[in-house]
Amino acid sequence: MASNRLACRECHHIIDPDENACPYCGSTSLTEDWAGYVVITHPEESEIAEKMEVTESGEYALKVR
């Protein structure tokens, strides 16, 4: 699923490969080495979002190396 998209090591957001920093948290610690993909649409109602400590809707990597 990665298809050259990057994951932020700090917040786990999935971002486009042309980004130099995460537009969500500002981190420059980005990687292509991630696994698992989840889309959170209603974080306030999601057990997965709670476990991941996610408070915003978006695309996330489950495991980031």
Rank of each mutant, 00 (worst) to 15 (best):
M52L: 14
D18F: 10
E59K: 14
M52C: 04
D16L: 13
N20C: 02
N4D: 11
H13E: 11
T41P: 00
S29R: 09
H42C: 06
L62I: 15
D33E: 15
R65C: 00
G36H: 12
E56H: 01
D16Y: 14
G58F: 13
A35V: 12
G26W: 02
N20S: 14
L30V: 00
N20M: 10
S27L: 10
Y24H: 12
R9N: 02
D16P: 08
A21D: 05
S57M: 04
E45P: 07
C22K: 00
Y24R: 11
E47D: 10
C11I: 07
R5I: 04
C8G: 03
S46N: 08
D16R: 14
A35G: 14
D16F: 13
I14V: 15
K63Y: 06
G36C: 01
T28I: 09
S46E: 10
K51M: 06
A2H: 06
V64M: 05
L6H: 09
A7W: 07
C11V: 06
P43Y: 06
C22I: 04
C11N: 02
E19C: 14
Y24Q: 11
Y37A: 07
V38Q: 05
C11M: 00
P23M: 08
T31F: 14
M52F: 02
R65L: 09
N4A: 10
V38S: 09
S29I: 00
V64R: 02
E50M: 04
I48L: 15
G26M: 07
E10T: 07
E50C: 00
T41F: 12
N20I: 10
A7E: 02
V38I: 15
N4R: 09
G58E: 07
C8F: 00
S3Y: 05
M52A: 01
V64G: 09
E47F: 06
C22W: 09
Y37Q: 06
C25V: 05
I15A: 08
E59S: 13
E56T: 01
L6T: 00
Y60C: 11
A21E: 14
V39N: 13
R65H: 03
L30I: 04
C22P: 02
P17C: 09
H42A: 12
A49Y: 03
T41D: 14
E32N: 08
I40G: 06
W34Q: 03
C25A: 04
I40E: 06
T55R: 12
L6E: 10
P17R: 11
H12T: 13
D18I: 00
I15C: 11
A2V: 03
H12D: 06
K63T: 15
P17Q: 10
H12N: 10
V64S: 00
A2I: 01
E32H: 13
H42T: 13
E10L: 00
M52Y: 03
A35T: 15
S57C: 05
M1G: 05
S46T: 14
C25F: 07
D18Q: 03
G58Q: 08
V39L: 12
T31D: 05
W34D: 02
E10P: 04
N4L: 01
Y60T: 13
S3E: 13
Y37K: 12
V54I: 15
E50Y: 05
V64T: 03
E50N: 07
V64Y: 02
A49F: 02
Y60H: 10
T41M: 11
